[in-house]
Design a protein around this nucleic acid. Structure first.
Length: 110
DNA sequence: CCGATGACGCGCC
DNA sequence: GGGCGCGCCATCG
C-alpha cells in the first residue's frame, strides 16, 4: 500500500515501486529494473536496494543478477537465498534458472 | 564540482 | 566455467 517515499530521491521511488510489483515466486534482475526505469543504471539500482527503507514491504530479495546468481543482500546473502526458497524458487549451486523464474517486463511497467 | 564507491553486466581470455 | 577489465549511473564526501 502507500509507503511514505517523501524523503527519498525520485530514482529511489522508482526502484522501490517497481520492486514491489515483482510477484511472489518470481524474480527480476537489476538490469531489468534499470531497463524499466529507462536507462542503464543497474548499479545505481543495487545501491538503492541496499538502502531499502522497507525490508518487508519492498521484496528486494526477489532482485537477482542477470547471470542467475543471487547477488547481494544487506541482511546477509544466506538469508536472501532462504527467502527465495520459501517462495518455491529453486536455487541450484547458488544459481536461479531465469528462463523459469524471471518476471516479464510488462508486469513491472504496469 | 570532481573523484570515489557499489546488492551490476558483458565481453574476453 | 572462472576470473579480469572496463563501462554503467545515482550518491556521497
Amino acid at each position: 500500500m502507500g509507503l511514505d517515499f517523501s524523503k527519498l530521491t525520485e530514482f529511489q521511488k522508482k526502484v522501490y515501486k517497481i520492486t514491489q510489483k515483482i510477484p511472489k515466486g518470481k524474480v527480476a534482475t537489476y538490469g531489468l529494473i534499470a531497463e524499466v526505469i529507462g536507462n542503464q543504471s543497474y548499479r545505481a539500482v543495487g545501491n538503492a536496494l541496499n538502502k531499502n527503507p522497507y525490508p518487508i514491504k519492498v521484496p528486494c530479495h526477489r532482485v537477482v543478477r542477470s547471470d542467475g546468481k543471487i547477488g547481494g543482500f544487506a541482511s546477509g546473502p544466506e538469508n536472501k537465498e532462504k527467502l527465495l526458497r520459501n517462495e518455491n524458487v529453486e536455487i541450484n549451486n547458488g544459481k536461479i534458472n531465469l528462463n523459469k523464474y524471471l518476471v516479464s517486463k510488462v508486469i513491472l511497467l504496469k
